[in-house]
Amino acid sequence: MLQNTFFTFTDLLAAGNTVKTDIKLNTAHPIFKGHFPEQAVVPGVCMLQMVKEILEAYIKKETRLIKAGDLKFLSFIYPDENKLIQMELKITMEDERIIADARLLDNTTILFKFKGIFVGR
């Protein structure tokens, strides 16, 4: 898990089927030494992993991502200890499938958009 090493998040706030939380990144995490040495940038795949871990924290179940139709990385995220970014995650349960529609935001600027299907395990 990247939770508590790479990033931390505040208590999950749920309204209807949407969950919101604020994320803080740990600039000292070793990933940032390799991505990239001259300039730390949050790897796109770590944004996806954060969606998965926040989803799992909310539904209290481990999952596997089986499909993702559309992921868009709209802006670089430079890790900053003094800054919070926001995640909004809409969850729809459909039989065995957990459909997640998520975005990462810096206040009103959308940084990352995710649509994917998970299954419990």
Partner: peptide
């Protein structure tokens, strides 16, 4: 050169 992932489509994962 350095490349960044801009978008991903039609991802399917069958096993880890």
């Amino acid at each position: 050169l350095t490349g960044y992932i801009a978008a991903i489509k039609n991802l399917e994962v069958f096993a880890l």
